[in-house]
Amino acid sequence: MKLKLAALAASMSVALLTALPATAADYVIDTKNAHASITFRIKHLGFSWLTGRFDRFSGTFSFDDKNPDASKVKVEIDTASVDTNHAERDKHLRAADLLDTDGFPSATFESTSVKAEGPDKAKITGKLTLHGITKEITIDAARIGGGKDPWGGYRDGFTGTTELTLADFGINRDLGPAAKTIELTLNIEGIRQ
């Protein structure tokens, strides 16, 4: 009898463990209606912040607020969609000595682990492929909010920031000592599928 109970408990705990990740919901990032953005900023000569964004990207994530560490996120960016509100600069950013968007038309990020750090905060580690080079990066993420939207859907939204060193990704154009790193911010709202 004791043996049977132990076996039952074991099988129940296995069932619970396997059931846990299944409760995480899948989301598609709402790029269609642009409730998401990928922006960056870099210091110009060390005198000011220059901001820009990638106009075209797509992505998905899974999220369960009961078990945030099981979350996953994947984003793909169309690098040629870079937009800094200055056509000639955008042309140069796409050129071979910077993003080389003909050679590397997309950049991708895929999470490998998520560690919750207190309520609504997490560190997302994953692989970023940019300019053909894959590196592990960590994004400081925060949950902004989530719930039913007014149109019958369910949404969750996050923001995340990270800092990249351009040379780590083989981007060696010298933009000056204050412009060796770039800050990247992802604002994503997902629609639960």
Binding site: D55, A80, S81, D83, A87, E88, D90, K91, R94, A95, T101
Partner: peptide, 9 residues
């Protein structure tokens, strides 16, 4: 047109 600058270039 966004992106035209690169094609024109």
């Amino acid at each position: 047109m966004h992106g035209l600058e690169s094609r024109a270039g």
